[in-house]
Design a binder for these strands. Structure first.
Lengths: 236, 236
DNA sequence: CTTCGAAAGTGAACAGTGTTAGCAATTGCT
DNA sequence: AGCAATTGCTAACACTGTTCACTTTCGAAG
């Protein structure tokens, strides 16, 4: 029963195999699209056969979800790294860097972005979901945390009147902000900003601006400025 | 050679068969998701076999694209109907109705919306595309037309300075606005508004607000108000 | 009215998919 | 050394898109 504490060589090679599966699956996704990420193709690339993969994932969907979870982590790490490029005393600059990094990651990895965020309506559901410990919160938390810090700085002018129907909903969101006693109408601003940021990135990453613009970056910068103004940090 | 002008019974039954394929494919999409829209399933539902469908569509992808094209038409018709609920003398009210209808359609038909707009990153590409006569322009044109009419009303305050890199891009967009000599910086406002509208609808339709809100309608109304303000019609 | 040809649909077949069952071999722990 | 878990394989089943050869149907021209 030493296997629990000690890495136990077997665990190591298993971890290595799991990692190779992830890397192979992702490579197929990037190079040939989602339809190419098939059990047999992954196995072929790894020099083994498809049923062997069932020793590592209980199904094709399980493998895809593991890949999605891994990508959520990568995105969260990238956002945190961008955040740490600026001092904690400047939450506005941090937020700017994080939002730009979110866009950059989405544009640099469109297939991965699609797997994470264009999937609730597709076959295999890899969406963030609702549970507290969901992989989606790992990267969402980075942004929400910065929003809370921006709120502490003051400058947010939340709407005075709030539809009563929102109260219950926003209270649930507040649960995720451990300990922070953020007013509900401020959380409303958070959600609105989140939606706008995500909408801007998604529309661009999904290519729905290609018909008009080959370089939508200035448009995104304008949107980003709006978002930060709403969050009380108009310094550009 | 009378078959060109006259409907010629054969054409009629063929049209009927094509229509039944569309309806069956859509029903499968709605009831069981995109993965269920398979040639054999469609044929089974219609009481025939899969190869028979090749008399109507050259491939599975071709059938899906035909379905997408049909859905673009339906959406365009729905938007036009919402537009016509208000007099042409009130382009602001018309725009409001069209935007609300776009959101309503997306929420009422999430699977269809996903087929149309979440697909560039998926297997079968059913995105609008760039060509002038693309099905995507059928519904996009409804919105752009209203934007032009709002511009004629005045009230748009476009940015004075415009990045030179945008000029070429926006000139291409202007080509689609037959005859209208819209200034480029006004077209910039069009594109920005389009992106914001689409981002708001897409984020909500893809379920990325479910974690926070069970009823994001007030948030959309707020966004819509912002959009119309940018387009020079702040009357709510 | 007969004949002819295009159109529509079928069944068989091929390569590919996810998945399961059963078997062989390697590996690590006692 | 021997036991048992782990790992991977082959074979097989049901499904997918697609092609081919064949039959049937049906509209139109002689």
């Amino acid at each position: 029963m030493t296997s629990r504490a000690a890495p136990s060589r077997r665990h190591r090679v298993r971890e290595h195999a799991l990692d190779e599966i992830q890397r192979t699956a992702r490579r197929l996704l990037v190079e040939q699209g989602p339809a190419a990420v098939t059990l047999r193709a992954i196995a072929r690339e790894m020099g083994m056969t498809a049923p062997g993969l069932y020793r590592y994932h209980s199904s094709h969907q399980d493998l895809i979800q593991a890949l999605a979870s891994h990508l959520y982590d990568e995105l969260a790490t990238a956002l945190a790294a961008a955040r740490d490029e600026h001092p904690a005393s400047e939450p506005g600059q941090r937020m700017r860097a994080v939002c730009r990094q979110l866009r950059r990651w989405a544009l640099a990895h469109p297939r991965e972005f699609g797997l994470l965020f264009a999937k609730p309506l597709t076959d295999t559901d890899t969406a963030p979901g609702n549970a507290a410990h969901d992989p989606g919160w790992r990267f969402g938390g980075v942004i929400l945390e910065l929003m809370v810090q921006l709120w502490h700085r003051g400058g947010i002018h939340p709407p005075a009147d709030l539809d009563t129907a929102w109260i219950t909903q926003l209270e649930e969101v507040r649960e995720h902000l451990a300990g922070e006693d953020v007013p509900l109408n401020v959380i409303y601003v958070f959600v609105a900003s989140w939606a706008r940021l995500f909408g801007a990135v998604a529309v661009e990453a999904f290519g729905h601006l290609d018909f008009a613009l080959t370089n939508p970056e200035p448009l995104f910068e304008h949107t980003l400025q709006d978002i930060l103004t709403a969050l009380g940090d108009p310094t550009g």
